[in-house]
């Protein structure tokens, strides 16, 4: 039953010999690698196969805009064949941190004005392009009968919230506080989309998300709308970055988001309009 004792040293020795035999190849390889890296970082290589004619505008956007802006972006590109939109979706706070670390981008759309205000010294004037509302997402059919915010406090309901670092978490927290509901979440997720996916996977029974997220998930979740409340509106401001490589295009994209084709797409996705 006892036996095999292959020498692990042998393949290592062979590898070492091979490496010593090909120093030229090795250095050529690393030069190639470095040049690849440099050209990739230079941005030019990422402009896309469509060629140098098109301008690539980089849009940083809140993760709750993932579906709607991807769709709107396609329409914008059809209308502006010389412009290509490149999106980076993440939690608004994370985007703000990236901007402060100097990430090269043209405009940013956050899910709250607080985050945008904190960026005032590195952005141009902000324009609110959409409104949203919170809703409760549950498993399809709502098996636990979660019908109101109060039900989120029930001990038998596993609730996930967005972390209070991200707008959805802040909105949710202030809503719960105003209603005097104390929720003990099982997790504070780093983005509102992560909350949605935990509900979709059935790991959590309920989560506070935006109505648009719940709508985007379709039949995968059940949506419990929350009654309208004054001052609880979620606002999406868009602003060009002060160091934008393409400031004119950035302004144009923001203006376009207020145009009729964009408003229709936003409305269809469940956003309300300013």
């Amino acid at each position: 039953m006892v036996l095999p004792a292959p020498s692990a040293a042998r393949p290592r020795a062979r590898l070492a010999t091979a490496l010593r035999a090909f120093p030229v190849l090795l250095s050529a390889l690393s030069v190639l690698l470095v040049s690849l890296l440099v050209s990739a970082c230079g941005g030019g290589a990422l402009a896309g196969p469509a060629g140098g004619e098109r301008t690539t505008v980089t849009v940083l956007a809140a993760s709750s805009l993932t579906d709607v802006l991807t769709e709107a972006g396609g329409v914008y590109e059809e209308e502006h064949p010389d412009v290509r939109l490149r999106f980076s979706f993440a939690g608004s706070q994370e985007l703000a941190a990236q901007v402060r670390q100097g990430m090269p981008a043209d405009l940013i759309v956050t899910a709250d004005t607080v985050t945008m205000d904190a960026l005032r010294d590195v952005t141009g004037p902000a324009t609110v392009v959409a409104h949203n509302r919170l809703a409760i997402a549950t498993a399809p059919g709502n098996p636990l009968g979660v019908d109101s915010l109060d039900d989120l406090a029930r001990a038998d309901v596993k609730v996930v919230l967005a972390d209070s670092e991200v707008p959805a978490g802040r909105y949710g927290q202030s809503l719960l506080e105003r209603r005097g509901v104390t929720v003990r979440p099982v997790s504070r997720e780093p983005s509102v989309r992560a909350v949605l996916s935990k509900v979709e996977l059935g790991e959590a029974d309920a989560g506070l998300v935006y109505v648009t997220d719940a709508a985007a998930a379709g039949d995968a979740v059940h949506t419990v709308p929350l009654p309208d409340e004054r001052g609880a509106a979620v606002r999406y401001p868009a602003a060009p970055l002060r160091d934008a490589p393409h400031p004119e295009e950035a302004e144009d994209v923001i203006a376009w988001l207020g145009s009729e084709p964009a408003r229709r797409i936003l409305r269809d996705a469940g956003f309300s309009l300013p």
């Binding site: 996930v160 972390d163 979440p185 099982v186 997790s187 504070r188 997720e189 780093p190 935990k198």
Partner: peptide, 12 residues
């Protein structure tokens, strides 16, 4: 961890 166990101070 953040994918499977989530993020809750003191727990995960």
């Amino acid at each position: 961890t953040i994918t499977f166990a989530g993020n809750l101070p003191g727990v995960t």
